[in-house]
Design a binder for these strands. Sequence first.
RNA 1: GGUUCCGUAGCUCAGUUGGAUAGAGCAUCUGCCUUCUAAGCAGAGGGUCACAGGUUCGAAUCCUGUCGGAAUCACCA
Length: 597
Amino acid sequence: MSLQQQLTAGIQACVKKIYSADVPENLVQIQQTKKEFEGDLTLVVFPLLRVSKKNPEQTAQEIGAYLSDNEPLVTGYNVIKGFLNLVVDEKYYLQFLMDYASKPGFGYSPVTPDTELYMVEYSSPNTNKPLHLGHIRNNLLGWSVCEIIKASGKKVVKTNIVNDRGIHICKSMLAWQKWGNQATPESTGKKGDHLVGDFYVKFDLEYKKEIAALIAQGKSEEEAAKTAPLILEAQEMLRKWESGDLEVRSLWQTMNEWVYEGFDVTYQRLGIDFDKIYYESETYAVGRSTVLGGLDRGVFYQREDKSVWVDLTGEGLDEKILLRSDGTSVYMTQDIGTAQLRQQDYDFDKMIYVVGNEQNYHFKVLSLILDRLNYSWAKNLFHLSYGMVELPEGKMKSREGTVVDADDLMDEMIGTAREMANELGKLEGIPSEEQEAIFQMIGLGALKYFILKVDPTKNMTFNPKESIDFNGNTGPFIQYTHARIQSILRKAAETGAQATFTPAANTVITAKEKSLLKLIHEFPTVVQEAAKNLSPALVANYAFELAKEYNQFYHDHIIVQETDVSTRAFRLALTQTCGQVIKTAMGLLGIEVPERM
RNA sequence: GGUUCCGUAGCUCAGUUGGAUAGAGCAUCUGCCUUCUAAGCAGAGGGUCACAGGUUCGAAUCCUGUCGGAAUCACCA
């Protein structure tokens, strides 16, 4: 039973005793005591006034007095207005440190065989252009959410749907055919995803020219966009692809291979992985037959031009196309098929889609459609809708060349880490290979933390002109604290100092030591909260809080040089545990921590 | 125009189911390295929580309206 639960039970018993009333758990509101007051946990007494029938101060006084007499965990109390501040026995925290927090696996809840299975989709790239900062947020978020859910005691399958077919892919292919001169990643020395992306841009450029020419001939913009030769050719290519045309399929395969090789490099650097990858090219047909089945059963309807639609006007939405008039599939078709396959393959309890909030409408529609098709599991789909990464000028636009490329950004961050370390002269005497590994750790740590510390649901701003910070509330700050801790532990090991400590009746600890203990004590709760809210930001902010607290402790306590053996052992145990918790928390964010920096 | 989301310090962000005097970091200014890593620590200034009402013991948080911003409503994905 947790501290809060014990205390809640104690308070319920107390209220029963002195006011002869049963109060439900949700009226016992316990929160962390604010820093400026004395105490550790605070009971908000307002909700209890209706049973005490006394004023707030008096009620708090009575409960406080009862608890300090009858509840062993409570060693003192004070009352400020309607708030009862309780002092928790230091021994409790000390015992917690030695029995739980300092042990391996602290913070994780065990996964049992009958626990729920979560399937989490993230990344979901299009194979027509390289990854940018927006994709980085998706990948980091998805990966971290998976790790956090796992740590909270659930089973997780990380999955990805690769959008490897469709009109957008045909555009790159067509441009390559027309203007590529047989270019390959080998012949150009370009990463495959970047090379293919260049042709996607080229298509758009030429397409725009055609549109402009048609408009000059007197056509409307809409008409021009629909009848430009290039788009007609791309559409023809898509039809050929769906009918299995050998030449088109072969080019498609080749160019997708290039992109995958490029993506693999990027994924690896980001530290992202998957348990099961689905390809749209393998799932869209399932979706299509489901849609046609639904059409037979009257769930959907067909227009004169043969296109298939679902009518959601009854739900306050619009009509949505499911199959084009030429029979080819759209995005929604594929998502229907993918969901079905996943349910068949894994029989998940929950399916989480990590997809940007620009697709809120899409997922609302997807759920409704699966519901109409009578799939009982449709209600288990959840869209983790995260905010856009914006530049100070607004949204990133590939057409205007304002996208922040994922590979470039990582290079830049690692470069900055290198410069800064060299300037500070911190890594002299360390083999250069190890140095490079540390630069990478720090550069990526700065980037990952910068993104993950923000509440996923909120839009965030990234200013490319101001490089990401390495001081303050940042990844490197936390990494630095870890390195510092390891340095202390190395020193301690040299002197043979012990970190094993047994709390005694006369053990006295400082205020800072106690607040550190309290913070460590909260870690498992933070992991649970983060899993419940699908928010790595909670873990990130916790890690910062802990590192900050540790640095303050470090600043005004001697550790290795402490002469009192018991005090030294306690501080070493505290230090060791802080290092461990920082490492675990950062690990949940996909951020490695160095032994020195 | 319909729907949805957002608005907290100069900037980037925290702020649990409504709880105490709204917090961090960056930037600015001031101190602290002969002592375990100064990528650190301590301190100062900086706020009409967009605005106006309402709900109640109590509102940044819930409700309504106004203003400002974003997304979406495609035979794009």
